[in-house]
Each structure stands twice: as C-alpha cells, then as structure tokens.
Simulated scan of single mutants.
Amino acid sequence: MHTDGHDLRHHGDAEVRDDGSALVDLAVNVRADTPPAWLREHIAASLTGLAAYPDGRAARAAVAARHGLPVERVLLTAGAAEAFVLLARALKVRQPVVVHPQFTEPEAALRDAGHGVDRVLLREEDGFRLDPAAVPEDADLVVIGNPTNPTSVLHPAAAIAALARHGRTLVVD
C-alpha cells in the first residue's frame, strides 16, 4: 500500500502506552487511569443487557430531530472510524482527496477499500488554513476535518461550503 512513507495506522496512544507517562494525548480516547468510579458503576449496571443488540431508535430519533431530517436518513456508527470504513466501501469514486493534516482514518479506510487517494497538504506557513482552490476540481470525494486534527484550525463555513460541487461527495469530520 503506497502511503508516501506515512504510517496511517500510528496513533498517539502508542506513545502514551509505551511509557509515555509524561504525555497527554487529547486526540484519541486515551486514559492513563481506569475510568472514574461513576463510569465503572454505570458500565457494570449495563452488563445484564449484553445479550441483546443495542436499540438505537431513541438516539436516531433525537439526531434526526436535531438536524431536521427523517429518521431513515440517520445512521449511527461506532465512532467516526466506522463511518469512514462504511463510506470507503460504499462510495464509487474515481478521484478521492483527503485534506491534511487530518485524522488518518479516512485515508486509511479509502486505501484499504482499494481506492487511490490524493492529498491536499495545508501549509504551516499559511497557518494550515484551507484554500478551496487547492482541491482539484475533478475530486469526486473530499474529506476534511474541521477543526483539523492535530492543528485545531477551524475552517470558516464559507471555505468548507466552497468545496461543494455537483457530483462531489463532501465529508466533514
């Protein structure tokens, strides 16, 4: 798999786990200690329901209502990583582009699904700000984080909206 020498599967939890006691990784769900007592109690109380599939109807209805969508347009996933895998497998795209710096899961999922992926690299000297013109016009899938990980740059809504095109899927994480 050609990834320009980047390890798309390396995450900061490796440093925290491998004697990184002085490190705090805020980009992933990494904890140095066990969960707090209140959370352990909540988890323990939920164990009797493990034999049944979760019922996401109430959550789907709440998300649909919040966004003014019909409930059948809402898909709950086990985090963004699962959503990226599902999109990569389902979408028939010719020219996917991932804007970096970015969470590596979207690109890894696309590559794992057999897609060639181009990158648009935001430049440090520009403050990692998005220039919509840097995204190739023929890109039929564009994935961008907002705010980006790890830079925390929040792109203006107008810059993100400028990426929208007929025939292009725009994914904003």
Rank of each mutant, 00 (worst) to 15 (best):
M1D: 13
M1Y: 05
M1T: 15
G5M: 00
G5F: 00
G5S: 06
H10S: 15
H11W: 11
A14I: 13
E15Y: 10
V16G: 09
D18E: 14
S21H: 12
S21F: 08
V24W: 02
V24R: 06
V28R: 13
N29E: 15
N29M: 11
A32Q: 14
T34Y: 08
P36S: 02
R40I: 15
E41Q: 11
H42D: 14
I43V: 15
I43D: 08
I43W: 01
A44R: 14
A45H: 08
A45T: 13
A52H: 09
P54E: 12
P54H: 05
D55L: 02
A58K: 08
R60H: 03
A61T: 14
V63A: 09
A64L: 03
R66G: 06
L69S: 07
V71H: 03
E72Y: 05
L76T: 11
L76D: 02
G79L: 07
G79H: 02
A83M: 11
A83H: 04
F84E: 15
R89D: 13
V93G: 05
V93W: 04
R94I: 12
Q95L: 09
P96R: 08
P96C: 07
V98T: 05
V98K: 01
V99T: 04
V99E: 04
H100K: 14
P101L: 07
Q102S: 12
Q102D: 01
F103K: 14
F103T: 15
E105M: 03
P106F: 05
E107W: 09
E107S: 04
A109D: 06
A109W: 03
L110E: 10
R111Y: 08
A113K: 00
A113G: 00
R123N: 01
R123T: 13
E124L: 11
D126N: 12
G127K: 04
F128D: 14
R129V: 14
L130I: 11
L130M: 03
D131S: 01
P132F: 00
P132R: 06
P132M: 09
A134D: 15
P136W: 01
P136D: 10
E137F: 02
A139N: 00
A139M: 05
D140M: 10
L141S: 00
L141D: 00
L141R: 03
V142E: 06
V143T: 06
G145D: 13
N146I: 08
S152H: 12
V153F: 05
A157W: 07
A157N: 10
A158G: 04
I160V: 15
A161S: 11
A162F: 03
R165V: 10
G167L: 09
L170N: 09
V172I: 13
D173M: 12
